[in-house]
Design a binder for these strands. Structure first.
Lengths: 339, 339
DNA sequence: ATGAAAGCGCTAACAG
DNA sequence: CTGTTAGCGCTTTCAT
């Protein structure tokens, strides 16, 4: 592989000159510039990023810590992050953490050793401490789709409270009075906010959400299914369920189906995220849409600014979710009680 | 951030010594080894990969070129590749190519500049030329889930012919005589093989597959839906459809539903890949399962060997697919013809 | 068993 | 406008 020396020699100039035409710095006569560029092309020369990183301290690499790529929501997030990163000249290294603290630390160490320019976190439930450590190391970091209210870190997320509020309001408008909510993990801020929004809507309608109707579940289809099953087995089962993500929502629909209930006739369900899954399940899932493209775009813009030192203060940008009404929600019908 | 010099000074030894304890090379007395390691810990020192890459020529980074992370099949592939890569000490940089040649070239150039140790291709329909270029550059490469029979490159894929054969055989056993197949892109070897396997099974049953019943479609749900729609609008529509991937299969089911047909009563459909989607659609999709975990594992092992120079000759490993029978296929019932 | 020194490929003053 | 030179942090002979 050709080096800058090869180019310099071939072009009859110094390596400094070559470096200048590569980086468009300093003053170079148009003539030598063209000449050098031609030589570079002929030699199929491409500057080594690792060598330049050694002095410039930039690798044009961003790490993305994410729980699990096989989860469509995170896969879609990763896709949108990678798109924007690529546009801005960064590569993305993917790290599946399974929300495991040990893995998170392993990955952040690796990223540091590789001098990643920045790290985007879509993971990290209780990793407040890890975040602090990173900040001390002056790592450029940003958090997506997770709220860490106690930390001054660039963040892009959706208004989870509003999302929960929209979901519940929709159900209430349809006449439902007896809701249940299946949530992912109440240690996570987002989940708590969604729940709170849901509560708020109910309260405004003069309803209360008893603790009994708030259930925490493993965050996959299976978990949603089991939890919904136990909910539906109650004496007075809810007529509508708000699942805190699409995966859970799908589990709910499947549980209903197994019991011979028809959605939305016998049970309304709304999800959260608006992943591809919501469009595939039958009936298609009414869900609170996260603007995934926009989330990805903005988080990369934020971290890019921070990397470039263009930043003023840290920001938390909150995008607004939208309710996408599909076929899984319908009017409350009194007779549906008789299960 | 601490450097090797800081450690050396603090420990009262030379940087060469420190380097030796880091890499466990050369001969170091147990005593100084322990001492140096303690200092490293105290200083929270972590060797810079970019510096060492400059001399060792290894970055412990692998690139993965993939059409689209938002496609669950590829997301699952990426997940399994990343898992194994991480186990073996590599980071994975993800590149979404959208099967666009320009993007493919852009990414491979970037990966070269960053001295990625290897590149795994899950993309590249007609990119035979790009592959050749990479081989000339002596890039370590490997191809997953795609067959490039004319090139001597490490490959791991599923037996597509067998997959097609299994799918069609299943349908035939159920009594279906009139099949159609929706495929993704006949320029891709895999698609042709699936079709060929399908044909073979039919032939063995004394049936023929007229060209009219072989349709090429955009490879997303929408494409499958439209294609299936046009198939079902034919005078004598097929009673079973083999879709060359799950996304298409789902489109088929949706198209059937829109026409008031019940799957599998009025139409049987089998997919390919066995992604999460197959379990979510209703009825759950009978599909040809690719062993995604194993594909990912083996491709990384292969490229890792190549990177380490442990390799003998190149290999093509062919894994065998399995038919997973779910609810979208059923016995042929004569009356279903009367649409 | 340990250290001195020469790079790896490139950038960034600083001279000229 | 162009070239010299001193690093960046680490690895690797080659002496000692």
């Amino acid at each position: 592989m050709a080096t800058i020396y090869d180019v310099a020699k071939e072009a009859g100039v110094s390596i400094a000159t070559v470096s200048k035409v590569i980086n468009q710095t300093g003053r170079i006569s148009e003539k030598t510039r063209q000449h050098v560029q031609e030589i570079m092309k002929n030699l199929n020369y491409q500057p080594s990023v690792v060598a330049s990183a050694l002095t410039k301290k930039r690798t044009y690499t961003i790490g993305l810590l994410i729980p699990d790529l096989a989860n469509p929501f995170f896969a879609e997030i990763a896709r949108s992050v990678e798109d924007r990163a690529h546009e801005l000249g960064f590569n993305l290294v993917i790290c599946n953490t399974d929300n495991d603290l040990a893995k998170e630390e392993r990955y952040t160490d690796l990223l540091r050793q590789k001098s990643a320019d920045g790290i985007i976190l879509a993971t990290g439930v209780r990793s407040n401490t890890m975040l602090k450590k990173l900040m001390q190391q002056k790592q450029a970091i940003a958090v997506i789709a997770r709220d860490m209210p106690s930390l001054a870190v660039d963040t892009v997320l959706v208004d989870d409270f509003l999302g929960g509020y929209l979901a519940a309001s929709h159900l209430i408008e349809l006449g439902h009075r007896h809701l249940a909510i299946i949530t992912e993990n109440l240690e996570v801020m987002s989940s708590r906010e969604r729940l709170r929004g849901c509560r708020q809507a109910l309260e405004e309608a003069g309803l209360v959400l008893e603790d009994k109707w708030v259930r925490v579940s493993a965050f996959d289809v299976q978990g949603g299914k089991q939890t919904a099953a136990s909910l539906l087995d109650e004496e007075h089962p809810p007529t509508a369920i708000f699942a805190c993500n699409d995966l859970l929502g799908i589990g709910v629909i499947q549980a209903a189906r197994e019991r011979g209930l028809t959605v939305p006739r016998d049970l309304s369900v709304v999800g959260f995220d608006n992943t591809i899954l919501a469009t595939i399940i039958d009936p298609p899932l009414t869900t609170v849409a996260q603007p995934i493209q926009e989330l990805g775009r903005q988080i990369v813009d934020l971290i890019s600014q921070e990397i470039n030192g263009n930043k003023g203060s840290k920001q938390r940008v909150v995008l607004l979710p939208e309710l996408v009404i599909r076929g899984s929600t319908g009017l409350y019908r009194p007779e549906q009680q008789s299960v």
